Amino acid sequence: MSGIALSRLAQERKAWRKDHPFGFVAVPTKNPDGTMNLMNWECAIPGKKGTPWEGGLFKLRMLFKDDYPSSPPKCKFEPPLFHPNVYPSGTVCLSILEEDKDWRPAITIKQILLGIQELLNEPNIQDPAQAEAYTIYCQNRVEYEKRVRAQAKKFAPS
């Protein structure tokens, strides 16, 4: 494992614990031996107030490669969400998460999670990743928002 990646992720964890947006979660997972795995984080993004996503808490896994922060983490909703920019596998399609697009090593975990929260309610229809959600979003916004509200209710924190 890269010392650069681990040191950056340790800084990220410290900064997150000191200050993070209300309702968001970002925690490194534990290895079988109980030690912390900084390369694999369990996160959760709350649906934004005043949107059909409100009330939901959407679980996301963030996986970092050894060359982080040169390369972005892979962000994957578990379980996958109904959304035009979420692949059926759950992987998020967002330009700041793509090395050859808008990724920059200075982007923080907090910025990534806030960017994904923004994307939930403002899909990028130029870059669809899920045919069904994309089609319904474009053709029947009322039905799309109904499905999103049902999903938010399903993923409401207990």
Rank of each mutant, 00 (worst) to 15 (best):
L63T: 08
T91H: 15
L63P: 01
A106D: 03
E143L: 10
M36W: 00
E42L: 06
H83E: 00
T35F: 00
M1T: 00
G90Y: 12
P88R: 15
N124G: 06
G56E: 01
L114I: 12
L114V: 15
D19H: 06
A152K: 02
M62F: 14
H20S: 01
I96M: 08
E54T: 10
K30P: 09
E42N: 05
L97G: 06
W16F: 09
V92E: 00
N85L: 00
L81M: 11
F24L: 04
D66T: 13
H83C: 03
E145I: 09
D67C: 12
G34F: 04
E98A: 15
C138R: 12
F58Y: 13
A133V: 05
A5R: 04
Q151S: 03
L119N: 04
P69G: 02
Y137R: 03
K48T: 11
Q130I: 03
F82R: 00
Y137W: 00
Y68M: 05
F58A: 06
G55H: 13
L81Q: 01
K59T: 12
C75A: 10
P80C: 06
K146P: 00
F64N: 06
F22E: 01
K154I: 08
F64S: 00
E12P: 02
D102V: 08
P88C: 02
L94N: 04
A131C: 13
C93S: 00
K74A: 15
E42C: 09
G47Q: 06
Y68F: 09
S89V: 07
T108E: 14
E99C: 13
W41M: 07
K101D: 14
R149N: 09
K74E: 15
G34R: 09
E12R: 02
Q117P: 08
N85M: 10
E132Q: 09
G115A: 06
A150E: 10
H20I: 05
L60T: 09
V27D: 01
S2L: 02
P52I: 11
P73T: 10
L97K: 02
E12Y: 02
N31L: 14
I107Q: 11
P21G: 04
M62V: 12
R61G: 09
V27Q: 02
L63G: 13
E118L: 11
L6P: 07
T51F: 05
Q151I: 08
W16G: 02
V86S: 10
D102M: 12
F24I: 06
Q11I: 14
A152Q: 04
P80H: 12
W103I: 03
A133P: 11
N37L: 10
K30A: 09
F58L: 05
D67A: 12
S89K: 11
A26V: 02
G34C: 08
Q117W: 08
